[in-house]
Design a protein around this nucleic acid. Structure first.
Length: 275
DNA sequence: CAACGGACCTGCCTGC
DNA sequence: TGCAGGCAGGTCCGTT
């Protein structure tokens, strides 16, 4: 469900609404997410203050003076800002109640998401160590392109799968891997190691471009994404290939195809994405 | 080391 | 209406 733009949209909203507020209480209704929610979170946070909300890849980092929460949304996770008395629905697993009558609520039907304890140096948490550079809001296109070209040397992994590898790039998901490959005119099934430097340059610009447009619109909606203020994202209407199998390509009129690799759909236009 | 398949879990949509 | 099957935006882990 959430890709980098959705996580970034969530980060902004949580930061704007909650940074600087004191945490009154932490309520954990269900602890068994992807990993159990550590009790350190409910033990140590009450009484402290949320300083700021940051993002690394698709992880949200909620910093406080006593340590950070690291949160991942998995496939179906969502943070929303609600009134403390808002009725608790199924899958509302965690509430962070803040002074001033606002509550951050974590909801996650599939429970692939996570709340982890990041301590004083969340960047050193095992889940964050080794993540690649940020394709949006990080190094410039040229540096990303060189990095990709370098990492791809000798590798036969299909481009789509290469882009999804978090050690290669931070936070690129299935939608944007397909979208960026289309924008760059590269077939997502070809071996990463066979793509030239100039084409990686185009790909880096394409990635930044699609992510940038999506972030500026508040994220993608395919089915159920909602940002913390309850608005749906708007990028879904603008996907060029993702979810559009059988439809004509806007750029060349070719018919978009869907393939399945690693049990995950991949979309491209066979006529304008060659090689 | 690289590549791949399976695992985690629930909900929603389609077709019979 | 009910039910089975396929599908979903993400990662991690074990096996070849």
């Amino acid at each position: 469900m959430p890709e980098l733009p959705e996580v970034e949209t969530t980060r902004r909203l949580l930061h704007e609404r909650l940074a600087g507020r004191r945490i009154r209480a932490v309520v954990v209704r269900r602890r068994d997410l992807r990993w159990p929610i550590p009790r350190t979170i409910d033990r140590r946070l009450p009484g402290t203050r949320l300083e700021r909300v940051e993002r690394r890849a698709k992880y949200l980092i909620l910093r406080t003076p006593v340590g950070a929460i690291i949160s991942h949304l998995g496939m179906s996770g969502r943070w929303s800002v609600v009134e403390p008395e808002a009725p608790v629905l199924a899958h509302d697993h965690v509430d962070l109640h803040f002074a001033g009558g606002v509550t951050a609520r974590y909801h996650d039907p599939r429970r692939f998401g996570a709340l982890l304890w990041g301590g004083d140096d969340p960047g050193e948490h095992p889940r964050l160590v080794g993540i690649g550079p940020e394709p949006w809001g990080g190094p410039d296109d040229e540096a990303i392109a060189r990095h990709l070209h370098e990492m791809a040397r000798g590798r036969r992994i299909p481009l789509r799968d290469f882009l999804l590898d978090g050690r290669v790039l931070a936070g690129v998901g299935n939608i944007y891997a397909s979208e960026a490959a289309h924008r760059a005119g590269i077939r997502p099934t070809i071996a990463a190691g066979r793509i030239s430097g100039p084409r990686y340059r185009r790909l880096a610009a394409a990635l930044r471009g699609v992510l940038d447009e999506s972030v500026s619109r508040g994220g993608t909606t395919l089915r159920d994404y909602a940002s913390p203020d309850g608005r749906a994202g708007e990028f879904g209407e603008r996907c060029a290939v993702y979810g559009r199998a059988g439809e004509p390509c806007d750029r060349c009129g070719g018919i978009i195809v869907r393939k399945v690799r690693q049990a995950r759909s991949l979309y491209y236009c066979p006529s304008c994405q060659r090689g």
